[in-house]
């Protein structure tokens, strides 16, 4: 159900994102989704890669601070209002999202939405109740 995301601590300075991406490139890891949260002097880079274990090892070996985090990925229509509808469902169940990011891809006409909250299981039941498709890790790695 849950997808493993890598959270990486970055300082807000030139080149720090590039350094991470270079390491992933050398490890031949493919980036499936990416989001960057920044808080003036530092930032948190969140990525989904096709081989999270390898990603963690490579980044740690290179001195980066990286933590695996579980997230939920869901499929939504790549049409106007799709995100609003999903957030409406989550709001109805009074679930407070910590963060989210979305990406679209070429393989289907669906977009993928990545969600994180304090209690992922509540979120899963909320979404399942409304028949929203939760995407498995393998499928994302395959996109």
């Amino acid at each position: 159900m849950k997808v493993e995301q890598l959270s990486i601590f970055l300082q807000n300075k030139e080149g720090s994102l590039h350094d991470v991406l270079e390491i992933l490139k050398k490890g031949n890891l493919n980036l499936k989704a990416l989001s960057l949260a920044d808080a003036s002097d530092f930032g948190i880079l969140r990525i989904v890669v096709d081989n999270p274990d390898k990603g963690i090892k490579l980044l740690k070996d290179n001195g980066f601070l990286v933590k695996p985090t579980d997230i939920i990925a869901i499929e939504m229509d790549d049409t106007p209002g799709a995100l609003a509808n999903i957030l409406g469902i989550i709001k109805k169940d009074k679930i407070n999202l910590e963060y989210l990011y979305a990406f679209s891809h070429q393989k289907t006409d669906k977009a993928i939405l990545v969600l994180h909250t304090d209690n992922l299981d509540d979120l899963i039941s909320c979404l399942e109740k409304e028949n929203i498709v939760i995407v498995q890790s393998e499928k994302i790695f395959d996109l």
Partner: peptide, 15 residues
């Protein structure tokens, strides 16, 4: 320097 102890996947926690 941030460390395992001082790193969380949330801006709120970090602040």
């Amino acid at each position: 320097e941030a460390s395992e102890d001082l790193f969380f996947d949330g801006v709120k926690e970090m602040v």
